[in-house]
Write a protein that binds this DNA or RNA. Structure first.
Lengths: 284, 284
DNA sequence: TATTTATTGAAATTATATTTCAAACCAATT
DNA sequence: AATTGGTTTGAAATATAATTTCAATAAATA
């Protein structure tokens, strides 16, 4: 469970202010020491202050210093991971199939580890309360939005997934106070998605973002930010393979958490959906 | 490094005084909670006192409570669990996230194992030769079709993914001899998809199916059949979670095999695509 | 240059861990 | 049954650590 602390530190390293960076470097170099030290000890060895240590924890999206220690401790017992491998010219089908599977698995594992359960909790509460959820993504992310829409409609939650910015603007303009706008963009920098979330925020509509784990414009705008694992893009993966599975995975987790929270009701809705589809199909 | 905390607790269990034993039992039953709680929280939930908690730590030969937490955290980082498990009522977010991940991983592994490389080879040849590929799926599978379309368009392969049966019939009526109709249906029994593939076959257009691994109507109709792992449907998974990831995985494998076969060309097309998107985005 | 904005660590505050200690318990002995 | 000596216990006191606040400073922007 709790782990991935070192990965978080690594990822954020060059986006941090100087003092936090010094601490981050120390952590990466001496993870074993960190696990058994206190805030002020860490402040000392890295020539900074306790406040900076706490700030670093928060910058990483963690609850506090304890949380960081727990996660780093988790990293230290884990066997070395396989890592990502890109597809190369004239590779055998067998190799392609296996690399693809192991990249996907890697990505799922990392994404699961990176989940911030406080944010997830907030997202679930917001989604439960909302009358309508407007999913919005463009390009590859539009597919994630559609998938999410399908899922939520099945449990009788109003959901939209248009890709037309004008339409989405209309929806937001008329949105209820409890509704949610859910922006999806792997890079977190897609202008259309940023605009849509900005609009929503301006109108006081709640926003959730789903981006790669990073300081992205989108995640900084959103009230609640969810993340998938980040992996360096290599030419072929850029056509979005594992990253997309990770996004779908997060959607699944949201859906299933909500489903688990209202178990009986969900089962009922899903049964109704199934019957309805059966009815349509038989009719021909 | 730091781990084995749970083992220590287990070993000592019956040598401990009553109050410490209660705490030890709680730790063994709820290790996840323990990792994120304080001395007094643990004292409360186990109906003892803070002092007893500290005494337990010392009894185990540890330095203190922090040390215990770190070691338990280490124990919790275990390799992904095996097998499928359905979501149950009022499950914790953490459990949902991990069950979902391990189900997905399991499904991907199985699907990779099930690949028939002769059929895959045939599918790749057919797709390489085709001027246009018509992906067709309904409901959850329509999303897989859209994903496939996006991928193939990126490498300059004509691709459609309509859900309107009339439109698809039109496309097939006018299809080239080398074109491919690609039917997607997890159950393999969706009437619309069966009809579309039947039509294609009747018109002498090549057909590929993607279904669960089973004797399905769809796979028996298709010239080339591809499969994802089959797993008994439980109420919640029926909302298609892992099965859909497995379908996307197969699409990825197809795409990447084709990409690997025409490496230079693919890289060129993907670069062009990226530039085009960049251009559109900048324009505003 | 003036003005805002971000970064920083010392000190205050708050939370948490640990120790102390008197009371309660219990088993063995008279 | 009463006495004794050793355990065990948790409330309260204390010590330690984590977190927040805030004013000073540095960097960016106008």
């Amino acid at each position: 469970m709790a782990s991935g602390g070192l990965k978080m530190v690594q990822k954020m390293l060059d986006k941090l202010p100087a003092s936090e960076q010094k601490i981050a470097e120390y952590i990466l170099e001496h993870p074993h020491e960190v696990v058994n030290s206190t805030v002020s000890q860490l402040a000392n060895v890295s020539n900074t202050s306790g406040a900076a240590v706490i700030r670093l924890c928060k910058s990483l999206g963690l609850k506090g210093f304890q949380d960081l220690k727990i996660r780093v401790a988790g990293d230290l017992v884990k066997p070395a991971e396989q890592g990502y491998r890109d597809i190369e010219p004239s590779e055998s089908m067998y190799q392609v199939a296996h690399k693809t599977a192991s990249n996907a698995i890697q990505s799922l594992k990392e994404t699961a580890e990176l989940i911030n359960y406080d944010e997830l909790q907030k997202a679930i509460e917001a989604l439960l309360k909302a009358k309508n959820v407007h999913f919005f993504g463009i390009g590859a992310s539009s597919i994630i939005a559609l998938d999410a829409q399908q899922k939520f409609l099945r449990i009788n939650k109003g959901a939209t997934a248009f890709t037309d910015v004008h339409l989405v603007a209309t929806l937001i303009a008329n949105a209820d106070q409890d509704d949610v706008v859910f922006g999806i963009s792997f890079s977190g920098e897609t202008p259309e998605v940023i605009n849509v979330l900005s609009l929503a925020k301006d109108r006081g509509v709640q926003t959730i973002s789903l981006t790669k784990f990073d300081q992205t414009t989108l995640s900084s705008i959103a009230d609640i930010s969810l993340f998938t694992s980040y992996s360096n893009e290599a030419p072929f993966r850029s056509a979005a393979t594992s990253s997309r599975l990770a996004q779908l995975y997060i959607i699944d987790v949201l859906f299933l958490c909500i489903a688990a929270r209202q178990y009986e009701e969900t089962v009922k809705h899903i049964d109704k959906t199934r019957e309805a589809i059966h009815f349509i199909t038989k009719k021909k």
